Computed example of a mutant assay.
Amino acid sequence: MFRRLMILFFIVPIVELSLIFLLAHWIGWGFTLLVTLLSSVIGAYLARRSWHRWWDQVKREWAFEGFPVHRLGEGAILVAAMAFLVTPGPLTAVTGILFTIPKVREAGSKWLVRWLSHRVVERWWWRS
C-alpha cells in the first residue's frame, strides 16, 4: 500500500505539470494560469454548495431514520473533492469537480463502501 501511494505521489505531479505545460503551449501561460485559477474558484464554490446540500440531507435523514451510515461514503468523497480542488492542476480540478456531481458521488460512495467492507471482512473477520 505504501509503495502504491509513493508511486501515486510521484506520478500525479508529473502528469499535472505535463498537462499544464501542454495547456500553456496551446493557449499561452496567461490563459493557463487563468483557467487554473478559475477552475479552483469554481470548484471550491461547487464543493461548498455540495457539502451544504449533503449535510442538510444527512441532518434530515438523521432526524427521521437515525444516523445515515450510507451517507458517510459521500462525505468522504466530498472531502477528497475539496482536497483535489485546492490542488492546482487540470487533472485534479476535473477530478474534484466530477466528485461534486451527486450521481458520480453516489456511485463512488457505493463502490467505496463495498470495497471497504470487503477489505474489513478479508482482514479481520476471516482471520479469527
Rank of each mutant, 00 (worst) to 15 (best):
L5T: 05
L5A: 10
M6H: 13
I7C: 07
I7S: 12
F10N: 11
I11Y: 00
V12C: 08
V12E: 02
V15F: 05
I20R: 10
F21E: 06
I27Q: 03
I27D: 05
W29A: 11
F31A: 10
L37D: 02
L38P: 02
L38M: 11
S39K: 05
V41K: 06
G43T: 07
Y45M: 06
Y45K: 07
S50A: 02
W51L: 10
R53F: 11
W54A: 05
W54Q: 11
D56K: 12
V58A: 04
W62H: 14
F64I: 15
E65R: 13
G66H: 08
G66M: 11
P68R: 02
R71C: 15
L72K: 01
E74L: 02
A76D: 07
I77K: 00
V79W: 07
V79R: 12
A81Q: 09
A81W: 01
A81I: 01
F84S: 04
G89Y: 00
P90N: 07
L91N: 03
T92S: 14
A93E: 04
A93C: 12
T95I: 12
G96Q: 01
L98A: 05
F99K: 00
F99G: 04
T100Q: 11
V104N: 10
V104H: 09
E106T: 10
A107G: 08
A107E: 13
G108L: 08
K110V: 14
K110N: 13
R114L: 13
R114C: 10
R114P: 10
W115C: 09
